[in-house]
Design a protein around this nucleic acid. Structure first.
Lengths: 201, 201, 201, 201
DNA sequence: GATGAATGAGACTTCATTCAT
DNA sequence: CATGAATGAAGTCTCATTCAT
């Protein structure tokens, strides 16, 4: 019994390791240019073995998106420890700034995956990517709401959109300073909301 | 001589037709999922013939980016006919709105190509995509400058970034209303600049 | 463990089988006129599987050259069992005679491969072919040296050159008797050296 | 009339130019690695035009062999001006020495073409290459005969074989000194025949 | 005859997926 | 479960040859 639990745990760990490897490699190389062998190699798992954990490559992509969602949850969970919603949002923006070098090289993980998946005939994976962005939007709206800002959903959409925009431009121009500057603007905007609603971003 | 000119023109036209087909199909299917046969079929040309005009698939991608650049130039040339820079910028934003359905389905052509190209080891095509975005940014900065807005480059970067962001989100959520709403916000922002500089977006 | 060794052995055997098939077909059809499908078919293996063992066609060519080198080694190892160097060299020449029909049809395996490879821009495979010929030359020189013939390297070069020449001519004229006659001459020459050095071939 | 003759002459010149270009490029790149475009480009002729002079690629190969035969005839015609057969043969060997650098890079033109053609299912071109070698052999035999050496055909075969051998080895080892040394040996051999028959090569 | 363009067969290579042990 | 090996569909690219003007 203990043995079987161990096994189950071990299996779960291997699944996780594969998902994490997939998240990493797919972010860096894109979906279509990444082979299963790349992911297996990154995870230190024999190629043939991958299929015991994921029946198709698409399932690995799905797992990678799940991984990104989990990381987002960890991030927001951390931010939730800050007392003021306003500070949480500022910290979110600062997180983006701290990732600017990676963004310049590989773009936003979820955003670029969504861009690639959005052109498929089959929508299911694309929707999964969209869900991760919506999850961020929902959390952000909750902050605006808690803060008492009117139209919290609109403000959230604007902030997430701004993140996608600055990530895309940072990536396209390979210039981390795009992130720095846009983030500064966003922080000013957040501060301007503090004084009270009325000033549109 | 007339004959040879005709031929040269015809060849150039076919090249252009292939480039246009490539621009369309690559936008809709992404680079890696598009085969040369797809492009050849879209252009109504046998596959083998494509190689008479473009030696590699990458050259076709490059041509597609050139096509997008040309369309951008046509767009801005049209906008330049408007007398006031402020109106040109408003019209730009409204152009984006008019494209919202296509954006919801396939994303911003240049932006999604840049996202896909940015993960390659070889930078040259990615840089080409970045150049198209920078071209838009330069034109935009020129409008802000003509308008007398301070920090025109910063404002231009913000506007282009906003476009990339709203396109990415519109695409990821398959929701054209994202574009509509963000565009509305941008128009307010442009109007607020009219009153005089000082109010940050 | 036994299992894994078995597998490794099996894999090595298949690699060898492919290399042997390549050596055969490349000898008979030449490099450029031989397709991977030809080699796969000769080895009784599906085409796709070939790439599990050899990443490119050139690697198969390299393996074929290795095969020829191995056969040369087996040949000289057999000759080394003869007590007198002089007899070993005579036996070498007689081996050539025994292969005259194949030579008339397809030429010397190493020699014709070298001829084809020598015209490439990239030298690496050509050098490999040259190394096989040099290996024969080295063994031959060792025999002359052991025999006490002066200038053993010169004599070896002459013998190997004679072999290449008679093989080329036998092949070009499709006439095995060229080999027979030139071999007779070479045997006389070897005998003349027996009496003592001094008589140039 | 003059006009038509001019035209016929011009056409013949173009044919010749193409054949010469083919001889050159095929020698340097081998048959299979040379494209019709390569030859057309080398001759300064548009690709489509080649087919008015040669209906297939194989006919161009045949023409290239004819070109090599013509050059051989020019060579022997020049040697025929020397009074003594013995000197003609010495001069022949010295011609080979003078070509050693080209041989090291590309091998003997006729020999390497023969090697490549000899592996085809269809014999006709291969026979053409063999005929060029036999032509050299015939001329050589005539010299030995005029000189009074017995078994002139055997001696001729040996000399031509020696040339093929030293060319092949020079090419395979990319070492022109192979030619120099073997040529020295051949000159000694020719001199030894001068004293009178009896000493076998 | 001359020429740029067209065509289609076929080559090499990659890779997701499956299989046998 | 584990794993090296197997498979075949598909993609990119080349090129001899033909065609239209």
């Amino acid at each position: 019994m203990t043995n079987s639990v161990d096994r189950r745990t071990q299996a779960a760990q291997k699944r996780r390791r594969l998902a994490a490897a997939a998240a990493r490699v797919l972010h860096e190389q894109g979906i279509e240019r990444t082979t299963l062998a790349d992911i297996a190699h990154e995870a230190g798992v024999p190629v043939g073995n991958v299929y015991y954990y994921f029946k198709t490559k698409d399932e690995l992509v799905r797992a990678a998106l799940g991984e990104h969602r989990d990381r987002l949850d960890e991030l927001t969970a951390g931010l939730d420890r800050l007392p003021a919603p306003h500070d949480r949002l500022r910290a979110l923006v600062e997180t983006w700034v701290s990732q600017r070098e990676t963004t310049a090289r590989y773009g936003c993980p979820t955003g670029t995956l969504a861009a690639e998946l959005g052109k498929r005939a089959d929508d299911s994976l694309h929707a999964e990517a969209g869900a991760v962005l919506r999850r961020l939007s929902d959390w952000t709206a909750a902050q605006f709401r808690a803060w008492g800002v009117p139209d919290p959903d609109d403000h959230a959409r604007t902030l997430v959109s701004a993140h996608q925009g600055m990530s895309a431009l940072t990536h396209a121009l390979r210039d981390p300073s795009v992130t720095t500057r846009e983030a500064t603007r966003l922080l000013h905007w957040l501060d301007s909301l503090r004084a009270g609603p009325g000033i549109s971003p």
